[in-house]
């Protein structure tokens, strides 16, 4: 079997997810043995043209230029993976979608406005078909390795987008919400991070986007009524990473 050709592309993002790929050195050696990284501007100087077997796209699409590139990438990649929350849901760049009229915001941020062609930030599946999603800001390296293995075996990894609370309780963490009154979003956020933040005493920020059948509106009511968060704070919580998703949008609009 020829080694599958892999490509990694970047749109509007912080490059943190790509960095996670580079950080899995010990795994990378083995994975790189099994795969041929043909295109990854961040990791190597000589990059080869497509087609590719698996393409990883990091970042949200925020400009017409990126959109054209994305369409070309889709055609070049047999399997297309959204790498990280920006590519999955819009991520942090999508905060701008909810921050008021676009021109006003652009005027606050940039001085040279004449060449600015910005469109609302969306995950890549807003525009093209996506075959697999690696959620998280940043992605979970274990999931990445599992996805690559599954792709090599030709099977669906069947990730389980149930709540972070599940992983949190398995670690027997004292609940930040119930016992400490902190606005933890773990109950409506998809697991897969091994409850990283709550295990370090920090409330879940919802970076992996909505869990299956997430009931964000109910959690928003708890934040507002029981924890006394202001309406704006509740909105900000649900719009931070995945405000584009109908699930979290409901949370943002619930109070």
């Amino acid at each position: 079997m020829a080694k599958p050709k892999i490509a990694v592309f970047k749109f509007s993002s912080c490059a943190g997810c790509q960095l996670s790929i580079l950080n899995i050195e010990d795994h990378l050696l083995d994975v790189a043995g099994a795969v041929d990284i043909a295109y990854c501007v961040m990791a190597k100087r000589e990059n080869r043209e497509g087609p590719y077997d698996i393409g990883f796209v990091e970042g949200a699409v925020t400009s017409p230029k990126e959109l054209l590139e994305l369409k070309k990438i889709r055609e070049e990649c047999k399997v297309l993976v959204a790498l990280g929350t920006c590519a999955c849901f819009g991520g942090l760049p999508s905060i701008k979608n909810f921050a008021g009229p676009q021109r006003e915001m652009e005027e606050r941020v940039y001085t040279e406005l004449w060449d600015l062609k910005s469109i609302p930030a969306h995950g890549i599946d807003y525009y093209v078909k996506v075959d697999a999603y690696l959620r998280g800001c940043a992605i979970d390296v274990g999931e990445l390795v599992q996805l690559v293995k599954s792709a090599l075996l030709g099977v669906n990894p069947h990730f389980r987008p149930h709540s972070v609370c599940n992983e949190c309780k398995l670690k027997e963490n004292v609940c930040l919400l119930v016992n400490k009154g902190k606005p933890c979003m773990g109950s409506v956020t998809a697991a897969g991070c091994d409850a990283l933040c709550p295990s370090l005493g920090r409330p879940c920020e919802g970076c992996r986007g909505p869990a299956n059948d997430a009931n964000a509106a109910s959690l928003a009511r708890t934040f507002s009524v029981d924890l006394g968060l202001s309406r704006d704070d509740v909105r900000r919580k649900f719009l931070k990473y995945a405000g584009n998703t109908p699930e979290f949008k409901k949370g943002a609009e619930a109070v």
Binding site: C165, S187, A211
Partner: peptide, 23 residues
Amino acid sequence: KEECLACGTCTTVCPTCFCFGVK
């Protein structure tokens, strides 16, 4: 249905819940 978050915590902490998946 309007209240429950579907988070599964109730079954995870339950001493008689036995359900599991195999992978």
